[in-house]
Amino acid sequence: MFLVKIQNNHGKVILCDFGKEHLIIKNYDLAVIGGGPVGLFTAYFARLHGLKTVLLESLNDLGGQPEMLYPFKQILDIPVFKEISAGSLISRLKDDLDDSVAIVTGHKVADVTKNEDGSLTIDGEFQVRSLIIATGNGAFKPKKFPLKADAEASQRIHYFFKDPQFFAGKTVGIFGGGDTALDWANELAAYAKVTLIHRREQFRGMESSVQKLQDNPQVSLMTPYLPKSMEMAGGKLAICLKEVGQPDHLETLAFDQILVAYGFRADNRFVKKWGVELDHGLIAVSRSMQTSAPGIYAVGDACGYEGRVPVIGIGFGEAQIAVNAIMRDLFPEKTLTVHSTALSK
Rank of each mutant, 00 (worst) to 15 (best):
V4Q: 15
L55E: 05
I283H: 03
V285S: 02
L23A: 06
K272Y: 00
E116M: 05
F203E: 08
D95A: 13
R287K: 14
H49G: 09
D96Q: 15
V210E: 13
I314W: 00
A134S: 14
G39Q: 02
A149E: 08
D329F: 00
A185G: 04
V271T: 08
T105G: 02
Q165V: 11
F255R: 07
L188T: 03
E67T: 10
T195Y: 10
F140D: 08
S288M: 14
M68A: 14
F81V: 07
V38A: 07
S229Q: 09
Q211S: 12
V112Y: 02
L226V: 15
G178W: 10
F161V: 10
T223W: 02
K73I: 04
E207C: 03
N186L: 10
G315S: 07
K52F: 04
D163H: 13
D29L: 04
Q214K: 15
A319D: 04
I103L: 12
Q127K: 15
V219P: 11
Y44A: 13
A302F: 08
P164C: 00
N60T: 11
Q214F: 05
E83G: 13
G205C: 07
L62G: 07
S100E: 15
F255K: 07
P66F: 03
D279F: 02
L23I: 12
A319S: 15
A168W: 06
V309Q: 12
S286M: 03
N60Q: 14
V4S: 14
N216H: 05
K345H: 14
D179H: 01
F166T: 12
F331G: 00
V309M: 12
I6A: 06
P71E: 03
S292N: 08
T42Y: 03
S340K: 11
A266D: 07
H22A: 12
